[in-house]
Structures are given as structure tokens and as C-alpha cells.
Computed example of a mutant assay.
Amino acid sequence: MSKEMVTALDALEQEKGIKKEIVIDALEAALVSAYKRNYGQAQNVEVDFDEKKGDIHVYAVKKVVDQVEDDQLEVSLDEALTINKAYELDDEIKFEVTPKNFGRISAQTAKQVIMQRVREAERGVVYEKYSQYEDEIVTGEVSRRDNRYVYVDLGGVEAVMAKQDQIPGEQYEPHDHIKVYVTKVDDSGKGPQVYVSRSASGLLKRLFEQEVPEIYDGTVEIVSIAREAGDRAKVAVKSANPDIDPVGTSVGPRGQRVQTIVNELHGENMDIVEWVEDPAAYIANALNPAEVEDVLFDEEDERSCMVVVPDYQLSLAIGKRGQNARLAAKLTGYKIDIKSETDASEFFEEDENVDEAETEE
């Protein structure tokens, strides 16, 4: 071993952020095993690596005892006192036992250990770096794709985006630069794995924070998001400041703020609605753009309600393939049954007839 090793360790720390102490500790532990394996020794040994010179020394560590029973592990008090009169019982003394040809073995061991620890430390650095990005947006470059994933190079790590995390209809080609939302960083045995998404509601929230300063600083708060990625989303917002219009602020002048987000998501439609404390008013807002005549709550299930809309608004309230009603239900957390005024009248007439019949009986 030589100063070349010290130089290599310094370079690893500077270029890859791998602390020199981590590699040295691993190297010393591996050299202890190598010494015992190659020289058939079972005694308690330590290996010391000189960080300045790159020299390696092997020491047998022996305990000071009254009577020696195992000379590989123990040394008598009398012998210890000939070395240094300050030694006492139970002290430990190091005797250098570095073999003459240990340099070759240590070089081979060092190479193996350093490569292994470099891989482990690099994985640790990557995990530590990207675990901080959980629930955040990062920009990456599409590197490749297969039947399971789109692989996104984040610069130092390749993230994976599963099919359910991709926006339907979007095409991801190599070298495309895309914004993705980090959903999870998993520190598995094979190394850290970063999972990203374009379909998660968290992506939409972070995009609004990027485009709307009032959302970023908390003046306007996103209360809830319901999203069918690539098609349509509903976002409920509120503000504690009565002078702030949370919907208008989020949409921006001439719709510029929300349009930037729509463009990033390749045309995904956005409904920005105001969250209010009154559940009926909130549910009516959530069914935007449909007009709502009344919201009636189920007495037996407080999270269920019937929404009455004008006859000509029924299809708009329900939406294409039920999407508007479905998103409103997800946004508010209520089970919503939408009826036209005509259907609602018939429904209540039937209820009245049933009640009358039960009374007569």
C-alpha cells in the first residue's frame, strides 16, 4: 500500500461524495479477515491504516492477565511490565504482527473492498439525495422504456415510471425532458429505487405551487384534488384572507396560470372550485360547470346526498361517462346522487305516497 491509495480515497470523497472514513473502516475490517484467513490465525487482531502515508499495520491485541491460558489472546502481567511499567491487569496491549508479504494480500483485498463499499456508499448517497425529493417535482430525461416502465434519468439515478403513473395518451420517447413527481424512494438490497409519476395528484399540487405564488406561500390553500390524469381534474381552493379570491388567483389573469399547467399536462382540463365550510355549497361548487338547485343530505348516511339540478343541466352535471359527478364525489368525499328536477319531484311524490299508505295501515 502507498500514498496512491490515499490519493484514490481523497478522489473518491471529492468526486463521489463518499466519505474516506467509511472506506477505511471497511478496509480495515476486511484486512482483519484476510489476515486470519491467509495466516491461519485466530487471535484478536486489529489493522491500522495510516491515512497520511498509506501504510498498513497488523496488530495482535492481547489482554493482560495474571496467568496466561491462551498466548494468542493473553499476555502475563510480568511480561507486560517489561514493556511498560504502567500496565495493569485487564489492560490491552497491541503487538505488531504485520507479515512481510501482507502488502500483496492487502492490495487485492483493498481493491475488492473499495469497489464494494463504493457501490454501497454510492447507493447511500443516491438514497439520501433523492429521499429528500419525495413528494416533490423533478425534471428528468427519458432514457428508455419497456413493457413495465418508462425509465427517467434524473442525473445520477434512473427512476422508473409504471404504467399507472403515466398519463394516458402521452408518448415518452428517449431524450424527452419531462417533469415527474417523486412518489417513493425505496432503499432495497439492490440499491435505491426511485419511483416517479405523471398521474399522481401530488404532481398537480406542486405545479400549482410553482405557478401560483399565493399557493406556494400559503395565502391560498389547495384543500382537495380529484384527478383523472390526461383528461380532467378538479381542484378545491380556499383562502383565510377575505380580500383574496382563491379561484381567480389560482386561474390567473386571463387564465394564464392555469393554462401553463394545462399545457404541461398536454391539455388536461382543470376545474378550479372554491372550498366553503357549508357542505351543500361546497358540493354545488364541485359540480361546476353545472347549476345546482338543491343539495339534500341522507339522514341515515351523513356522507351521502341527493343533488337536484334543472332538467336541461342533468347531462352536464353527470358529465361524459359520469366523469363530472365522479370527480365531484372524490373531491368532496360525499356519495352524490344527481337527479333532474322532474325525477326528484317524482321521487318525493313516491315517498309521500308510501308514507300515506303506511299511515293508513
Score class of each variant (00 low, 15 high):
28 E>G: 10
313 Q>M: 11
42 A>R: 08
183 T>W: 00
159 A>L: 06
49 F>Q: 07
46 E>Y: 12
222 I>Q: 03
319 G>A: 05
244 I>E: 12
256 Q>R: 09
167 I>D: 03
277 E>F: 11
133 Y>A: 14
332 T>I: 05
109 T>N: 08
92 E>R: 15
268 E>N: 08
297 F>Q: 02
79 E>C: 08
136 E>S: 06
93 I>A: 06
1 M>V: 03
183 T>D: 00
346 E>G: 05
266 H>A: 09
201 S>L: 03
344 A>H: 15
180 V>C: 06
92 E>S: 10
168 P>R: 00
96 E>Q: 10
150 V>Q: 01
161 M>W: 03
114 I>P: 04
32 V>L: 06
144 R>Q: 08
334 Y>P: 07
172 Y>R: 00
53 K>R: 12
115 M>C: 01
348 F>G: 01
28 E>W: 02
307 V>G: 04
265 L>S: 00
231 D>R: 12
105 I>Y: 05
66 D>H: 04
61 V>E: 10
85 K>Q: 11
145 R>A: 15
43 Q>P: 10
306 M>Y: 06
84 N>F: 04
21 E>Y: 02
57 H>K: 14
288 N>T: 14
214 E>K: 14
220 V>F: 02
72 Q>D: 10
274 E>S: 11
321 R>W: 02
347 F>P: 02
16 K>M: 11
67 Q>L: 08
298 D>W: 07
146 D>Q: 13
249 T>R: 11
356 E>G: 03
69 E>T: 15
294 D>I: 00
127 Y>F: 15
358 E>P: 00
327 L>G: 01
209 E>C: 05
289 P>T: 06
13 E>M: 04
287 L>E: 12
299 E>F: 03
341 E>P: 01
183 T>L: 00
8 A>C: 07
354 V>T: 13
211 E>I: 10
39 Y>V: 00
66 D>A: 11
303 R>D: 08
158 E>P: 01
125 V>M: 11
351 D>K: 15
209 E>A: 13
121 A>L: 10
135 D>Y: 03
211 E>Y: 09
237 V>F: 02
357 A>M: 11
6 V>T: 12
